[in-house]
Design a protein around this nucleic acid. Structure first.
Lengths: 110, 110
DNA sequence: TTGACATGAAACCAAATGGTATTATATTTA
DNA sequence: TAAATATAATACCATTTGGTTTCATGTCAA
């Protein structure tokens, strides 16, 4: 049973979600990312630390730069949590279907 | 363009995720839900307020009780955010495929 | 080797978060 | 009608969060 907490905690912040979207396009170092936001570089570095701890971002040191790369496996795991509700979705649809069918039957019998 | 913030903020707390899972099984009033946790009822009520504001839970007053019902539409919208990364997933797989194919070609030419 | 650059680390702060206890209100039920 | 029930509302508190500034460190390039 996986611990969803670090991932969902990461996704709760709009800046962190934006960073993930940026990293979808290409790997970036902290400075590159910070340039896209109004906040200071240390603030962005903190967000990246949280993303890294949740294993959503992998950090690779290259000389004096640190390349941040998106790791999708944790996002996929988080989707499992959503899929848990799929059954409910089906159940709701089936219930609706049942209601409609019952209604049709009712109408016929009148 | 939808605002994902209320939903992702809601999902960041383990108690709230647990409440959503409980409501998947059946509609429940605040007291029922609070019985399943160690925290006080007002604390649970606060979580339900946040879930309601994110439209993840619909509250229906019946006499002195307030029935909490799961609303899946917002969860489905949140899944759209995840789906945005599917392309990246494909891209990664395609890249891997390309690398392997190139490797095979290389080997052939030797 | 010296200066510029990319980042880390620490101290600090305001606001949000997740909880509590207490009191008030409305609806059942005996 | 009076008591019990289900919840709302308020005030309060400790901790976490998201940001800042400042200073230190390691690496590249002239």
């Amino acid at each position: 049973m996986m611990d969803y907490q670090p991932v969902f905690r990461s996704l709760a912040d709009p800046t962190r979600r934006a960073i993930l979207c940026m990293l979808k396009e290409q790997d970036l170092c902290i400075g590159d990312i910070a340039d896209h936001f109004q906040m200071t570089r240390p603030a962005v570095a903190k967000h990246l630390k949280i993303l890294n701890e949740a294993d959503l971002v992998i950090i690779e040191t290259q000389g004096r730069e640190r390349i941040n790369r998106l790791n999708l496996t944790q996002l996929m795991s988080a989707m499992d949590w959503f899929n848990y509700f799929d059954q409910f979705w089906d159940k709701q649809l089936n219930h609706l279907k049942q209601v409609v069918e019952d209604k049709v039957l009712e109408d016929k019998e009148q």
